[in-house]
Design a protein around this nucleic acid. Sequence first.
DNA 1: TAGAGCATGTAATATGTTACATGATTCC
DNA 2: GGAATCATGTAACATATTACATGCTCTA
Lengths: 169, 169
Amino acid sequence: MEKKLLLLGYLLSHSMHGYQLNQVLQHSAGLPITLTKSNAYKLLGNMETDGWVTYREEQEGNRPSRRVYTVTKEGKAVFYRLLRENLSACPTPEFPAAVGLDFVHALPVEEAVALLEQRRQAVEARFQQLDTVPDEILQSHLTIEYLHHYYGSELEWLAVIIDRLQTKD
Amino acid sequence: MEKKLLLLGYLLSHSMHGYQLNQVLQHSAGLPITLTKSNAYKLLGNMETDGWVTYREEQEGNRPSRRVYTVTKEGKAVFYRLLRENLSACPTPEFPAAVGLDFVHALPVEEAVALLEQRRQAVEARFQQLDTVPDEILQSHLTIEYLHHYYGSELEWLAVIIDRLQTKD
DNA sequence: TAGAGCATGTAATATGTTACATGATTCC
DNA sequence: GGAATCATGTAACATATTACATGCTCTA
């Protein structure tokens, strides 16, 4: 449902066609969930069947025709319902990256440290990327600020853990 | 794959049957990913087919017989491969709960604040739960420490945001 | 004797990813 | 002339959840 909430939210502020949406989704590294191209198309199709959105066929010159989606009245109602649910509850986050942590001790300390150091760099890269987002965009996009905050605290934590592993050695 | 890594990791330290595993999974609120009962059974079945684990049928008294799973040599090799991958890379976390943040402004400020306040309490509850885990368990379970750290920083952030929304009013 | 616990699973459904298909247009 | 871009999607597969089925045992 969160993916539909995301789509409805975007479409409410600007009517868009699928391709355009995908560009938004791909180029912003600041998304809190994954949404792939083909899945976005499928979800748009589903929401259209359910009457949450409608589209009008549009064509610019001889370009392939495209479907510009607009949220219907029912869709808008659904959006508000989903939004309220999403804000008040706390759908549990998934941290696949944390699964290995419980088993670090299965590896020799130096190797574990080296691997985590690699990870630190990967996280650092993502953090930097979010760091370059201009302030005026940050203000209207709380999720980016959220992720920025998350990756920052992640980096701190990783440093602590790496350090702890090393000094225990 | 992370779920299989999780299962292999658990089974390497103690051979277990499915039911026992599920008890571990359910009662520890400190898991970084979701793993439901029927999915665990299915994954065990798959891993058995792939030769990563074997089981021996066991029976206590007249209780329903159970399958005690043990990791094979191949399974162990897979475990180490998955563990190295998991530690060095950083599979992106999913934050379904953050999706709504970008759209808070679609609601009247007071309502948004009230909803987020509700969320804060939900997060607080989870945090408290992790907070009661005794230190000796924390030490051998980095993921719990990880989640504890995460929910803590989440609470701080929520407080800041709620405050910001209110004072902008 | 009724209900909770033990122990396994299946069937139906939902959700999501990957790779592929199409065919025009624009840019180099 | 060839590659990238525009724009849509489908088919096959992978993954996961929900609800249900079974049948025994132990406890109140």
